[in-house]
């Protein structure tokens, strides 16, 4: 069974968002997504200072099996990227909500997060996929 931490926000396209104390957010892909993709071998990270609209393609994660686009769950600016994923893309497999984070975004408007799914609703969506 996939892990779905209660304190995060989720998208239907399987990204997660965590609000940090400084009102920036960390973004990654969910445990369910990494499980479906299988062993990750390459992550195309977003550029620093990239400005994103909610729903923009911001990154590509590639497993042995397939490639998947990662969409920005919120509008804002990329202010930090997880460079470690260049060397160790499988951090997303090992620790999708921790060391497998993809980037930090400074949101234009934090209230946009209210449109996202909570853990219960996300779990409902992934259980309906099967």
């Amino acid at each position: 069974m996939s892990d779905t931490p209660r304190d995060l926000h989720y998208t239907e396209s399987h990204e997660w968002v965590r609000i940090e104390n400084d009102d920036t957010v960390l973004v990654g892909v969910t445990d369910h997504a990494q499980h479906q993709l299988g062993d990750l071998v390459f992550v195309e990270l977003p550029d620093m200072h990239l400005t994103l609209e909610k729903g923009d393609e911001m990154s590509v994660v590639e497993s042995v099996k397939t490639a998947a686009d990662v969409y920005s769950p919120i509008s804002g600016t990329v202010i930090e990227i997880n460079n470690q994923l260049s060397e160790q893309p499988d951090l997303i497999n090992q620790d999708p909500y921790g060391r497998g984070w993809i980037c930090r975004i400074k949101p234009d408007n934090l209230e946009e997060l209210d449109e996202l799914l909570d853990a219960d609703n996300y779990e409902k969506i992934i259980s309906e996929e099967h």
Binding site: G38, D39, V41, V64, K65, N93
Partner: peptide
């Protein structure tokens, strides 16, 4: 079986 945990 596609894999048993990690295909790599």
């Amino acid at each position: 079986p596609l894999h048993y945990g990690s295909q790599i």
